[in-house]
Simulated assay, not measured.
Amino acid sequence: MRLIDIDHDAAVTFPAEPFRIRHGLADHPLLTLDALAGLAGRLDRDRVEYNSGKLQPNQPPDEVPGLDLAPTDVVRQIETCGAWMVLKNVETVPEYAALIRDALADARAAIGGADDDGMTDFQGFIFVSSANGVTPFHIDYEENFFVHLHGEKFMHVFDNRDRALVSEPDLETFPGKHRNLSYLADFEERATVYRFEPGEGMFLPYTWPHWVRTGSDWTISMAITWKSPRDIRMNRLYLANAMLRKLRLPQPAPGRYSAYDSAKVMALATLQAVVNPLRRSEGMRRRLRALLFGRRANYYYGGERKV
């Protein structure tokens, strides 16, 4: 089996809508608990986020309980510690970068795409969760091949075109913004629920809202992500709108004024060309987030807070 295997008929809506996939990563040696405990100790601290998994879909960001454990101990004790963890940007470690490249190559081949089909800025996020945990309602700013590796997991997915669920301001993003979004119980009437066992997964498109729960066993999953040129443009536009909104300058929804959108995108691209080289070190990333967006932008350093 390919690392990512896609039924051609299921992928006819790619990349506009979700669909199920299968994969050959469940037994990969880089994705065992032992390997991930070692990875948690190798990554920069701002690329390791964890907290209690005892949350609700509508969990307020300021009320997320933490854990009094070191990152490696969270992984090693995941069967009993009631935790949720994400290891971010694992592509910064060479062997994981190679694995992600190979998986995306298999996905492109299965879909029928070329090597230069717009899958740029690939990244990897690995989730390690205790039983009966919840990842609250949120959106992600990448295209995602989600692969499930251990245990049982359920993903509640919502259509990203429904502005009754996620408003235009909520779509806007900036570094350090907490992922959790406002969720109401009646949203669930609009959800499609996907159940995953090891070897199963799905394609989740850019900014499709979702929340996740685990079953009665601990779990490992991985998000293999990339951005299309359109995604990169939209991310810049959302960031520009968020920054201007923080200056009390409300912004029109993307697409209403194309020339204005283009001007904001060009300005952000210029700013990022200056700032991105400064973000290579963890210390500088932390200082920049605090300077531009306040100290609360570094919320994921609070992982050691006690429950």
Results as ranks from 00 to 15, higher is better:
G112Q: 05
A297N: 06
E197Q: 15
T214Y: 04
L43W: 02
D159C: 02
P252L: 04
I220C: 13
R20K: 14
A273T: 08
Q272P: 03
R233S: 12
L292Q: 08
D46C: 08
D44C: 08
R108H: 10
N89L: 12
N160C: 06
D261N: 06
R163P: 08
P60I: 02
E95Q: 09
F127R: 08
L87V: 04
D217F: 10
R161H: 10
A110L: 05
R108V: 06
E172Q: 15
R42P: 10
E152H: 15
L55F: 07
K246Q: 15
V274R: 06
A105Y: 11
G53N: 03
R45T: 09
A273S: 09
G118V: 01
F174L: 07
Y194N: 05
Y238L: 00
L204N: 13
R163M: 05
R22P: 05
R179L: 13
G118T: 01
D73Q: 06
L104W: 00
A109E: 15
S216V: 14
D62Y: 07
P15N: 01
G151Q: 02
F19Q: 02
S262Y: 11
F154T: 08
D186I: 03
D9N: 13
P229Q: 05
V307R: 15
L181R: 06
E197R: 15
G112Y: 04
G303E: 02
T270K: 15
V275E: 06
S216F: 09
P18C: 00
Q251T: 07
P277L: 03
A185I: 13
A114V: 08
L69P: 10
S258M: 15
L184Y: 15
D117N: 10
A37Q: 04
D140K: 11
G255L: 04
F125Y: 10
I100M: 09
S182Y: 12
M234R: 14
L249M: 10
A98F: 07
L165I: 02
M119P: 08
Y257P: 05
F127G: 05
F122A: 12
A253V: 04
I4S: 03
S228N: 09
V86M: 14
E197P: 08
P250E: 01
I220K: 10
L165K: 03
G176T: 05
S167P: 14
R22W: 13
S228A: 01
D7A: 07
R295C: 06
N241Q: 10
P94W: 05
L271Y: 14
G255A: 03
V12T: 13
L291Q: 12
N144T: 10
R22D: 09
N132R: 15
A107E: 00
G53L: 09
V90N: 06
A26C: 04
L239N: 12
D44Q: 08
S216L: 12
Y300D: 14
I100H: 13
M243T: 09
T270E: 11
G133W: 07
S52N: 04
R42E: 12
